[in-house]
Write a protein that binds this DNA or RNA. Structure first.
Lengths: 211, 211
DNA sequence: AAGTTTGTTGACGATGTAGTCAGTAGCGAC
DNA sequence: GTCGCTACTGACTACATCGTCAACAAACTT
């Protein structure tokens, strides 16, 4: 994680505090990806961040709280890599390619964040009940894709068609990564498959829109 | 879970034992999908199965062991729904459709197994190190797809092309479900998206094979 | 420099959990 | 019936984990 120094947080004390907070976030990201979210103890995080245990509770309510924060951050990072919302209308093909490309650089540059993102996605998908408030970053993520394809859609489309295509794009981007890694493909193979998925998606969506 | 009574397990005693084992498997499946694999205690499982805690350890080594058993079972179930290995050579389109269809009925009829399968897939993908021996069912799953597309491939194809297409198919089948559920689409919407993914995949793979 | 506020600490009580094991119940053989 | 065997039980030990809190430290204020 590498935020800029935040906007003038007053003095040294509060600067130190945000540094501690950041260390906790970094440590949590690492531990979550190593031992799994539920499989890790708060003390694993504070140990790795080299702070006292009590400090954790000054910055976060509990494990779910810090997980939420990390997933929000991950979603932000991924969304920032997409073309700007107000970007000029380009061909549908190019827009799809841009969006997949955003996932690709996210995966290559911040695979730690992406892996947590995928972990969270599955957690929310399979047992939303026990994870209050965790669906928000994913809804934001799909929403971001939706608005970004809106301006490039060949036809106006039905109300929920945009959402459908956005979901499909997300699946085309996230699916190959999860599947590829689950059978221990190399990162390189995963990336190749992702490009394949892009082509596949493109062809498929065109077909959908023709009807 | 609903196995047939197993092949003649001798007398009533051992029949009672496999019934207990089955109750544990059923309970574990339920609990895993409710509280998450790592978030649940052995006693949650035995409690739900209404057996003593010690009984668990008579049938399974530990939590990872029963999880492995369940994932193996899930993979078997999914594979059984695919067309038989020795099935007649049909068109590539139809074969892809058959395979996606297998996922679809698996999802509609045994969503509990499929959700655990997806959970396991993500666990293995994001942190293989801490989960020894858990990748096997997923390798088996991809292998099953591979052999089933082999006979219908338009061209012989390169050695790892089959694997690539198999991964892509798996992604096209699993991705939309995970993404769909993560933004709390209805089961119906998820199924619709899955069909979209099938079309998309078909178009994309054809394009791949043309080159 | 003295006093106040803010951030950090780790020991602590309470609770949870894994895995064991001596004991019990049910079954099958004779 | 009774003996041996297998399946089952749940109290128990040993340890892990949570979240708190009184004490401490650093940074600000006057």
């Amino acid at each position: 994680m590498d935020d800029e120094p935040d906007q003038r947080p007053e003095g040294r004390a509060s600067r130190r505090a945000s540094k501690t907070r950041q260390r906790l976030l970094d440590a949590a990201l690492y531990i979550f990806n190593t031992k799994g979210v539920e499989g890790c103890a708060i003390e694993d995080i504070t140990e790795s961040a080299d702070v006292g245990k009590g400090t954790f509770y000054r910055h976060f309510m509990d494990k779910l709280d810090i997980l939420r924060t990390l997933l929000d951050f991950a979603a932000d990072d991924l969304i920032k890599r997409m073309p700007p919302e107000s970007s000029p209308a380009i061909s549908f093909d190019d827009r799809i390619t841009q969006l997949i490309q955003a996932h690709l650089t996210f995966f290559t540059e911040r695979s730690d964040l992406f892996l947590l993102f995928l972990q969270g996605q599955t957690m929310v998908a399979t047992r939303p009940a026990s994870l209050p408030g965790l669906h928000a970053p994913f809804a934001r993520y799909i929403g971001a894709i939706e608005t970004r394809i809106a301006t490039s859609l060949p036809a106006p489309g039905l109300p929920d068609q945009k959402r459908q295509i956005a979901s499909l794009l997300a699946a085309a981007a996230c699916g190959p990564i999860t599947v590829g890694l689950s059978i221990s493909s190399s990162k390189h193979d995963v990336i190749k498959n992702l490009d394949l998925a892009r082509q596949s998606l493109l062809a498929g969506v065109k077909q959908l829109l023709l009807k």
